[in-house]
Amino acid sequence: MKTVFVQPDRCVGCKQCEVACAVEHSQSKNLYQAVFESPKPKPRIFVGPGIYLNSSFPNKCRHCNPAPCMAVCPTSAIKRTEDNEIVLIDGDKCINCAMCAMVCPFDVIRYYNSIEAIRKRVVALKCDHCVARQQDGLEPACVEVCKVSALLFGDINELAQKASSKLARIVSEIDTAVSKEPLHLPDHLEAWRSWGKSASKLAKK
């Protein structure tokens, strides 16, 4: 199963994924035309601030299985694709009741006028894993545009394996105390993190 994997420690909160997502879900698929479109295209990924001045997290639909939003939709507008990978909302069936937003533990469903619904009415919008792009063999727009590899796209098993072997390496290196070098994030990320921590401390005083 292919999915978008989030590495939150790498996110710098630049919001480029939000822009790319909105453009991808616009009619023109072009940034300069998209801003003049009506209804205005909206992102389905949300980068918000956290408790530290520089913490951020690219928050998007996890395509849960079982999906709570799908269970509570009173018009069966929320369905899973046949290969069971992606949870999609059918705008034509959505009645904008917000039951899905009530049960989504990640808060990734928003309500806007949509070109995907009849009469462009207000319906529930959320990440569709860029199904159209995937059919063309492309990765989701947010992943393509992410400059710090906070978003990765790939087979969930392979990504999980990579992450676990990275963790195993870190644990064994701490254990044997050979070298702590590989533990470090790239310098620019390390600098960004420590700036955030000290700035947050100052702000609290």
Binding site: F46, V47, G48, P49, I51, N59, A67, D107
Partner: peptide, 26 residues
């Protein structure tokens, strides 16, 4: 996150930052 709950920009990142995330699964 007690103090953050009244902030207008409270969002999922607060949950993530404080590792409350492990408890907030469907």
């Amino acid at each position: 996150i007690r103090d953050n709950l009244s902030e207008p920009n409270f969002c999922y990142t607060h949950i993530h930052d404080t590792a409350l995330m492990d408890n907030v699964i469907p």
